[in-house]
Design a protein around this nucleic acid. Structure first.
Lengths: 241, 241
DNA sequence: AGCGAAGGGCCGAAGAGCAAACCTTTACTC
DNA sequence: GAGTAAAGGTTTGCTCTTCGGCCCTTCGCT
């Protein structure tokens, strides 16, 4: 009986169980979507009574989350007919990443690598003409905002999420938004000169070309190169690099 | 303002928040580890008072989970000094996958693809000599159990988890055990003749060789081929293939 | 003026989780 | 054989989260 080997995995199997509350998860979901620009400034959220049904939680729980997001300035509500809950414009300044987040930056990048590689391979196999066109439009749009990092980053996120949606796999799309949310916490404060963004967007072009050509291998290679860019920047600035 | 585009991602952003309880998560964690053979039959779990501390939950919550696992026959407890909670030997027969699980089989495979690709790429970059030797031993062991699918599958899981551990990224290791747990639910009932297992293990060899050579591209290609095997089998047997 | 759709507030029931006791069984030690 | 230590088993009571429903307030539209 090979019992001794099991001890190696014990740290994984017996690692702490983290159970997020519905409240916390909702704040994180909506907050991330707002910070990523998936819900752009000025956008209106669904009515509370509808949203809580969609999220599968009680309205009072949703309201707790919305109250938190109101107090943090990400959202603003108006009453009466035609009212609703709207994403703030402008958004509050982002908060600097916690020590915790910084300490785990490499694991965050590792997870993102997995998601992005899996996504790009499957997208190359499954993307349809319309998906590719949408991706090309996003890349073209990026070209116009090389001087404006926040705008660039927002469209960049859209690009990666669109790639994930092209896989037709909701779970991968969720994984992608989570990964992008975690990355944004890390890179929001790093200077990104236009030349860097231009070369990053050139990599986007190569990725889309490989997807259009239905060439998963080339797509994966292009994506790997793309991710190495940010990773090298982080390695130079953060502990443990 | 590009508000219209946001609607596309709405299904992702507003998807139900699934808040697992600590009890559920614990049952799943331990149950998966047992079904995967990470905790082999006869193995002794840590004492309740220690285990609940490691899992970060109250002892009463842990006991709920252990009671569930006892009733399902995966675990058995003995009292008194020198007693403890032990993995059952033999294990209860696996239950057939639910309709729910079967309906989402493709998404499960997609997630696994992402995890395995990310893992193998990072393992190829980071694995040390000891890691590679452990992997080679596991592959050698697989050669001896080509006639015994349960035994093969168990060592197969160990192989993939060991690969994940070679990345030194706890989160990827966790993702790998989760992915393997989900896959086991799908493939437990599918006949696997020795020839198929032999060719599967040949792919293992190629993966290890690429990792040893520190060649992420070749490692990813070998892994992709490896995964296609099971995926094609499932596509032939399950709905939506 | 009134209707209806939206956010805002309140309250009680139910359940999950926690903490800290205490009990029972059993093997080892002196 | 008595004592002790280490394990699982049991009980109790408290807190916090979540749910579900009900009613209020606001305010644009008809």
């Amino acid at each position: 009986m090979i019992v001794s080997e099991a001890v190696l995995s014990a740290t994984t199997v017996f690692a702490p169980v983290r159970s997020q509350t519905a409240f916390e998860e909702t704040v994180e979901r909506l907050g991330t979507a707002i910070k990523l620009g998936l819900l752009p400034p000025g956008a209106r959220l669904p009515a509370e009574r509808e949203l809580c049904a969609r999220l599968g939680i009680a309205r009072s729980t949703l309201r707790q989350a919305l109250t938190a997001l109101t107090q943090s300035g990400h959202v603003r509500a108006t009453r009466g007919r035609g009212g609703g809950t709207f994403v703030s414009d402008p958004l509050p300044p982002a908060e600097p990443p916690s020590h915790e987040v910084l300490a785990l930056w490499r694991e965050t990048c590792d997870e993102r690598l997995a998601v992005e590689l899996g996504v790009v391979v499957l997208a190359a196999e499954r993307a349809e003409e319309g998906d590719v066109e949408a991706l090309e439009q996003l890349v073209a749009g990026l070209e116009d905002v090389l001087e404006d990092f926040p705008a660039y980053r927002q469209t960049d996120v859209r690009f990666h999420v669109a790639l994930a949606e092209a896989t037709r796999s909701p779970r991968l799309a969720r994984a992608m938004t989570d990964a992008q949310g975690a990355m944004t916490d890390l890179i929001a404060y790093i200077a990104h000169p236009p030349e860097v963004l231009a070369s990053s967007n050139a990599q986007h072009r190569r990725i889309v070309a490989a997807v259009r050509a239905r060439d998963p291998v080339r797509a994966a290679a292009a994506m790997a190169e793309h991710l190495q860019g940010t990773e090298r920047v982080l390695a130079g600035l953060l502990p443990g690099g």
